[in-house]
Design a protein around this nucleic acid. Structure first.
Ligand SMILES: NC(=O)c1ccc[n+]([C@@H]2O[C@H](COP(=O)([O-])OP(=O)(O)OC[C@H]3O[C@@H](n4cnc5c(N)ncnc54)[C@H](O)[C@@H]3O)[C@@H](O)[C@H]2O)c1
Ligand SMILES: NC(=O)c1ccc[n+]([C@@H]2O[C@H](COP(=O)([O-])OP(=O)(O)OC[C@H]3O[C@@H](n4cnc5c(N)ncnc54)[C@H](O)[C@@H]3O)[C@@H](O)[C@H]2O)c1
Lengths: 226, 226
DNA sequence: AGAGATTTGTGAAGAAAAGCACAAATCCCC
DNA sequence: GGGGATTTGTGCTTTTCTTCACAAATCTCT
């Protein structure tokens, strides 16, 4: 086995489309690793993740040259490089606002903690929920009143926030989170949030997803009857 | 008020990026309509939905010419046109497989029924859940055993399926859904599903979303310390 | 050590999406 | 009915993303 020469780490900006796919590659690599695989080709990894092998190689080429021609990629090594690039080796503190149907499902979900996301704060408006405890990953957390949000989030130093409140109050909650120092927000409310520069928002819009599927479904029908 | 001349309905393919935004415009228009607004300009609607006005106008131009120069768009009329284009006037039957944390939150969510998506079937593997009832929108539905999936879905004639089971069994569930006639799938399991041609899959990957935010968050830090 | 088989990394071409800017259509008011 | 103000619809440009296709690097086998 030859000594691995230090690979060149690219320092250009990574295209947004690539960033969105890195978590998917990361997950597939994790599976391969757990299955004991040590090597994988771009063709195999592409098959597993549902992209083309050319796209996969180009995506990876933005991080650096971590493969070996004629051979493929070392699973563990590539996985580590993606994790480093994405900041998954850091621990991220996350707060969730709104513990209704969806917020509770998110809080209880074990998959976040195991990926470096620690849920450190839960906030709701409803007096019936405040004070009750939820098991999130390893620890139990008490639901705090939304009125405490600004103070508590600042103290917890969380910079990631999840909004799972009704659409009507989402902008208000968003403003409070931003005021408390949150700079990245995952928004489940079906509404656009405006934020100052430097604050990222990603929306997950479940009803829209169904509507997009329905649109294509309708097109399939039109074709058939045409 | 002049008679509205029949607007030309465009019959070209609508770009995918546009399709993904139509539900967002639709929702904003619904809000405006409920608020009693009758007209809206591309500038205002763009502001509400977080896009630029030029993009919005180009998106709408793919459906037809439904605006009036110098005036704007009629809220109700434009809303109806988008609904028609997206097939939101039809009723869509949806089944959900996996009623854990997430599946239950989805099943209980009222926002789907009100948008033309009827949840008509719930399936799980767990004997403790089978037979129990869940209130979904107007009606109560009994959770059925996953072994019945093929038969029941065929009978229900559902063509939209939601997968909310652990990743390890997602492909199996997907295959069963496809066999039963489902041609559009919303997948919450963090794994790629392979399906035959003609079957659409959209993935909603919550952990990936957090990871993407974390990536940008890390970049912000690097900038600051640079 | 060389020939043949793989498989990466990447320029270049092509396609899709976004952004710009302005003519054309409409309204309002005098 | 005409002039000024408004706002759409769209051709054109730029940017971003995807796909193609092949030289370069590595491995295996003899
Ligand atoms: N449940 C789903 O499957 C689903 C699907 C798509 C979208 N959504 C969206 O996600 C959001 C949450 O959905 P849900 O089903 O959990 O709703 P929900 O009504 O069950 O829960 C909302 C929670 O937010 C809390 N809340 C209200 N105002 C608040 C405030 N000002 N500060 C803090 N907390 C406040 C409420 O007390 C409640 O606990 C909604 O915007 C909904 O449209 C949910
Ligand atoms: N809960 C979340 O917030 C969250 C977040 C991100 C991703 N996810 C993903 O969504 C999926 C569901 O998450 P969850 O938290 O609801 O998990 P969960 O374990 O609470 O629920 C899974 C359900 O699927 C059922 N199931 C298992 N095998 C089945 C089969 N073969 N047929 C039918 N039903 C079967 C189980 O009985 C269980 O009720 C998982 O893939 C998870 O990774 C969940």
């Amino acid at each position: 086995m030859p000594l691995r020469t230090a690979p060149s780490v690219k320092r250009g900006k990574i295209p947004e489309a690539t960033v969105a796919r890195l978590p998917i590659y990361y997950r597939a690599l994790t599976q391969l690793f757990e299955r004991g695989e040590t090597r994988v080709s771009s063709e195999e990894l592409a098959e597993l993740t549902g992209v083309t092998s050319a796209k996969l190689r180009k995506d990876l080429s933005h991080l650096g040259t971590y493969g070996t021609r004629g051979v493929g990629y070392e699973v563990e090594y590539l996985r580590f490089q993606i994790a480093r690039e994405m900041g998954l080796n850091n621990d991220w503190s996350v707060v969730i606002v709104g513990l209704g149907n969806l917020g509770r499902a998110l809080a209880r979900y074990g998959g976040f903690g195991s990926r470096g996301f620690q849920i450190v704060g839960l906030f709701d408006h409803d007096a019936k929920l405040i004070g009750s405890k939820l098991r999130t990953g390893k620890s139990e957390i008490e639901i705090m009143p939304a009125t405490d949000l600004a103070r508590a989030v600042k103290q917890l130093k969380a910079r990631l926030g999840v909004i799972a409140v009704p659409a009507e109050v989402a902008q208000k909650v968003c403003d409070d989170l931003v005021k408390a120092g949150v700079t990245s927000i995952l928004n489940f409310a079906p509404t656009h949030l405006s934020t100052p520069d430097g604050v990222d928002v990603r929306r997950v819009d479940l009803a829209s997803e169904l509507q997009i599927l329905a649109f294509h479904e309708q097109k399939k029908n039109e074709e058939k009857s045409a």
